[in-house]
């Protein structure tokens, strides 16, 4: 039977080159397994053949992440193995970071299965968990004996394209991705059961741990409005007639900007509402109600600020995924800063 070819990545310590004093070693490649590589082959009952082992110093990898990545990628591409294994890195932060980064890169560029293992608090976990599977490991090499079989078992599943079960069944760290599943009991019954446990002081498990939100500190005030370029923008979905860029009514996939430099107000019919989360009747009657161009022009004439920016950014803020909203906010901010805008009036619906 043809063996499964593997490239294995380890740090200088597991590569038997030395401890912290050798942490600056640049990546090097050796034939065959080194150290725990032999254990991986043994646990696979000889099905895996570690054809190359890549060793890199922790400091070098941490300080030259991109360079080290490209070097390792080149080597792996040349070998063209069936599987890439990194670590296990346990609780070692620099090691975990390079394992996570390399697995991500190789999976993306070469499309082959990758696997690594770490302790849940290893910084490499947050870096890579959304993109790859990371087997849960203890914080030190004492856990080696139990984690190696889990890695091999999971890698086999990836190689065979078998369905992947839940984190607790398979032993990988939760990736923070929420998928829909069917439960035996309907939601109302689960709520009654959870309440009974909570009221009795028994332990219960919430189905939705509260996410932690970023807090955006407010920008400092505009120093001198009379010289400032000011913009208006909205998540209220006011778009030119016919919604030319097809901004979705819900969970919008984009934001757009439109020219208003030659307008004193938003004319009815020429502008309309693409937002699915509110009754558009009043805003369709008069789009200035959601994007107050008429009032902004009046302020501009009065000299409340120097000039109104010639474009307005717009999206639909209706059950939009927070990750998308964050991205639109960042991109709109960058666009405004580049244009020299000092302040924006954002209307919300």
């Amino acid at each position: 039977m043809k063996k499964i070819t593997v490239v294995h990545y380890i740090n200088q310590f597991f590569g038997q080159l030395g401890g912290e004093e050798k942490a600056d070693i640049q990546p090097l490649i050796k034939d065959g397994p080194v150290g725990i590589g032999a254990q991986l082959e043994k646990v696979s009952e000889g099905r895996y053949s570690i054809v190359k082992t890549i060793i890199c110093g922790d400091n070098y990898a941490a300080e030259n992440l991109e360079e080290a990545g490209l070097k390792v990628l080149d080597w792996v591409k040349e070998v063209s193995p069936d599987l890439f294994i990194a670590g296990p890195a346990f609780g070692a932060g620099r090691y975990g970071t390079s394992c996570g980064m390399l697995c991500k890169l190789i999976q993306k560029e070469l499309g082959i299965p990758v696997i690594t293992a770490m302790h849940p608090v290893n910084p490499g976990v947050d870096l890579a968990k959304k993109d790859i599977y990371i087997i849960e490991a203890g914080d030190s090499a004492r856990d080696m004996r139990s984690v190696i079989p889990k890695m091999v078992h999971f890698a086999d599943k990836l190689l065979n394209h078998e369905p992947i079960g839940l984190p607790e069944e398979e032993g990988y760290l939760p990736r923070g991705i929420r998928i829909n599943v069917r439960e035996e009991k309907r939601g109302s019954r689960r709520a009654v059961d959870m309440l009974l446990k909570k009221v009795r002081g028994e332990s219960f498990v919430t189905e939705l741990p509260m996410p932690v939100f970023d807090h955006v500190p407010p920008a400092p005030p505009v120093k001198d409005l009379s010289t400032a370029l000011i913009a208006i923008g909205t998540e209220g979905g006011v778009v030119p007639e016919g919604n030319p860029d097809h901004i979705e009514a819900h969970n919008a996939s984009k934001w757009c900007k439109y020219f208003i430099g030659d307008l004193d107000n938003l004319q009815t019919v020429k502008y309309e509402v693409a937002h699915g989360g509110y009754d558009p009747v009043a805003a369709n009657d008069d789009p200035n109600r959601v994007l107050p161009l008429d009032a902004a022009r009046a302020c501009e004439k009065e000299g409340a600020f120097r000039e109104l920016y010639g474009y307005y950014p717009v999206t639909v803020g209706n059950v939009t995924a927070v990750n998308s909203a964050e991205r639109y906010g960042r991109e709109i901010g960058e666009m405004l800063i580049e244009a020299g805008v000092e302040g924006i009036i954002l209307t919300s619906t």
Binding site: L166, P167, P174, R175, G176, I177, R178, I179, N180, V181, R182, E183, E184, K185, R186, G187, S188, R189, R190, A191, E207, L208
Partner: peptide, 9 residues
């Protein structure tokens, strides 16, 4: 909770 759909991480 009329249906039996839920999410898991």
């Amino acid at each position: 909770g009329m249906e039996n759909l839920k999410t898991v991480a």
